[in-house]
């Protein structure tokens, strides 16, 4: 079951000769650096040479969703300046990729800068959430990971309904050695994070998060996995307060784990 396999890594990655950039996202960069690190390790293991353009900052989603879309305009411009020259951009966050692919377009269209709107529209389709990049661009589902634990997966709203990643993360997880993947009841329901919603409507947010956490506890999983650390911080914050001992982990960290370097 755990013997090493040769067929997991395409001998010549499909991105060979292409320039691939990591968009770490400001939250991950600042608060959860283990996730972009895991993304780098995973992609390098799959033969992808990934670059981290250091001028990147933030997609501006928090500004846009809080009603300050015009303040996000400089960040939209920065994003296309920094990433426009790459063949593919990969980010370990469904929410931030959703912001780039959906919201940047509207912000750029509403600005007076026509060329910006064109550049945003041109770059958008080349920005991928991690599971999309692995499955659609690299064409792999078995990334050679090993994670011998009981795990349940929460599909985050923006990856599910904005990006339509569908079951790509589950396909990647099913191929992980030793994993005991259990289904999360009512998985597609929002966890209640919702950015500033978690603070502005804290009572409802906590009610939604508590229901989500109860479902997670009910699966008997040791680890809760998702593609967005913001949602994981919310559900994980409740799981922690309840002293459940369940560990929230980003998809990238599980996929990066191997027998030699366990997570």
């Amino acid at each position: 079951m755990l013997e090493p396999r040769d067929d997991v890594v395409p001998s010549e990655p499909r991105t060979s000769g292409q320039r691939v950039a990591l968009f770490a996202t400001c939250f991950n960069d600042t608060l959860w650096p283990e996730t972009p690190k895991a993304t780098v390790h995973l992609l390098e293991r799959l033969g992808v040479s990934v670059d981290f353009p250091a001028d990147q900052t933030c997609c501006g989603q928090m500004l846009t969703n809080s009603g300050y879309g015009s303040s996000a305009l400089p960040l939209v411009r920065r994003f296309v300046d920094v990433f426009g020259g790459y063949d593919a951009v990969v980010a370990p966050s469904g929410s931030c990729v959703g912001s780039v692919r959906v919201q940047h377009r509207r912000i750029a269209e509403e600005s007076d800068d026509d060329s910006l709107a064109d550049r945003v529209a041109e770059l958008g389709p080349r920005v991928y959430e991690l599971s999309e990049f692995l499955v659609d661009v690299l064409g792999v589902e078995d990334v050679g990971a090993s994670f011998p634990h009981r795990v349940t997966y929460h599909p985050t709203c923006h990856s599910l309904r904005m990006l339509r990643v569908d079951d790509r993360p589950l396909r990647l997880l099913r191929a992980v050695r030793g994993i005991d993947l259990v289904e999360l009841p009512e998985a597609q329901e929002c966890c209640g994070f919702g950015g500033t919603f978690a603070l502005k409507n804290a009572d409802i947010s906590i009610s939604m998060g508590s229901d989500k956490a109860r479902h997670v506890v009910g699966t008997g999983a040791e680890v809760l996995v998702a593609g967005d650390n913001s949602c994981l911080a919310h559900i994980g914050g409740i799981l922690g307060r309840w002293r459940t001992g369940i560990r929230p982990m980003h998809l990238a960290e599980i996929l990066a784990a191997t027998e030699g370097t366990p997570a």
Binding site: N65, R161, E189, F193, G194, G195, T196, N201
Partner: peptide, 11 residues
């Protein structure tokens, strides 16, 4: 306008 987590289920 803030009575939503923007989960998108309505859309």
């Amino acid at each position: 306008p803030w009575a939503s987590s923007l989960c998108g289920a309505c859309y």
